[in-house]
Nucleic acid binder design. Structure first.
Lengths: 250, 250
DNA sequence: CGAACTGTTGAATAAGGTCAAACCAGGTGG
DNA sequence: CCACCTGGTTTGACCTTATTCAACAGTTCG
């Protein structure tokens, strides 16, 4: 599997000035929060909307940094690769999340659209100028980076020390929490990724992921609506498993 | 194992204004780089020196953020814990590294001094004011956060997808690289942590770490001077193993 | 209806973990 | 000076968990 940028060809780009921010679905949770009205207006001034089709690459490692912006719709997977193709997904990005690293010259990993993705894209030179001129924006980015770092470290704990069952429970709770923040709680959790991608996020094989799904289902902790829709039936039980407080979780 | 802050009692604190920055050993690599002379002077104005004895806790999870500063001497381990005591070390901090998260209200993990540690400490309210007033400082922190995030994701790749042998090789190369940046390259690599702590960093058991040390030694890639001093004899070979380009690394 | 996916389940295997014993260096004190 | 202790480390034997390989089932889509 070669992964050069632009090689997965299905990229379909639309570039246009974005809608009014007030109508934006992720206005309250994205970088934009904590900006004053005039600041927000300046940010909108440099933004362009860009759409990626499912399966298309947003960026690849060693490319010059270019894609920096906010996910408005869809899901992205960010991942790292080893020489022989082993893959580790380092994060899924949902609406409201920030993509790319404005302080980096070149990308250190890969990003691919899992679904149709709509981005509110900030061209690098412009956003770097705004960062320099708008302390609020820089501060917000620093806060976001801190949260990302903490999440990454939480995931190091998962990958280094949790069992397969604990990993899957943690994953489902994370998705539920992210959905809650986006304001789409209540209903079943939508899984825009397949078993193999969950496996690459949890450091497991896809078969193990499947087996653990079955176990959680049989234990009554979750219901599997369709393969890509999960309902949490026992939040406390799932939480206990995720925290590692359950002994015979075999 | 209870881990409340201040419970590991051997903490011995000295608080005093730091020396001239020009004489500081880590002046060129710490946050301080990229500050103008007057900015540096302001930062020095709020700094105090603090010393931690080996084994003492710098901070614990859920504590209000307090310790924020630069490591001047010694080594710190930062880690996360599960309810049953399973531990994952999320990073070792060496001279020049930045400790703590100035944007966080409460700590999300633990930090403990492995050796005698000397810190150039910035009291939280003061550093937060300086961050607001000095864009250069904020920008530098953002860059550092980005590097930390990338390293954390690189470690997710290691924990999720690398074999025991690949993990140890990667670890040794990381230590060598960090020593190089600090300007203490050339000689053997100093390991301020024991096998059990290496294991908790690599997501392995201490026995597996020990076995992999022996294998790398027998393969002629490293020499073990004392248990805590390693010389890399074959940098290319070690790099190939770390990258996963070696097949029969069993 | 059949092809192509994606997901599930089963059996065999391997990598690493666990438990336990031996080892080794550095210190202590007779 | 040397026996003895002690903590960290190494090594061995066995066991467990998750992986691998393989077959099978369920959906979706032409």
């Amino acid at each position: 599997m070669k992964l050069v940028a632009g090689d997965s060809c299905a990229r379909h780009e639309t570039a246009a000035a974005p809608q009014e921010c007030a109508q934006c679905a992720v206005r309250e949770i994205a970088v934009c929060t904590a900006l004053s009205a005039p600041e927000l207006e300046r940010l909108r001034g440099i933004a362009v909307t860009k759409v990626y089709e499912p399966g298309s690459m947003l960026y690849a490692a060693d490319e010059p940094a270019a894609v920096v912006g906010t996910v408005v719709q869809g899901t992205i997977k960010c991942f790292k690769l080893l020489a022989d193709g082993r893959q580790q997904i380092v994060g899924f990005l949902f609406p409201g999340d920030f993509v790319g690293a404005p302080t980096q010259e070149t990308m250190r990993g890969f990003a691919e659209a899992l679904t149709r993705v709509e981005l509110c894209l900030f061209p690098l030179p412009s956003i770097q100028r705004l960062i320099r001129e708008m302390p609020n924006l820089q501060r917000r980015l620093l806060t976001l980076a801190g949260e990302d770092l903490n999440l990454a470290q939480e995931w190091m704990l998962l990958l280094g020390r949790k069992t397969a069952q604990e990993r899957l429970a943690t994953f489902l709770l994370l998705l539920a929490e992210k959905a809650r923040v986006r304001g789409v709680a209540g209903g079943p959790i939508d899984l825009p990724m397949n078993r193999s991608e969950i496996a690459d996020y949890l450091g497991l094989s896809l078969e193990t992921v499947s087996r653990q799904f079955t176990k959680l289902k049989n234990a009554g902790h979750i219901r599997i609506e369709h393969n890509n829709e999960i309902t949490i039936r026992n939040l406390d039980g799932l939480t206990e498993i995720a925290e590692g407080s359950v002994q015979g979780a075999a």
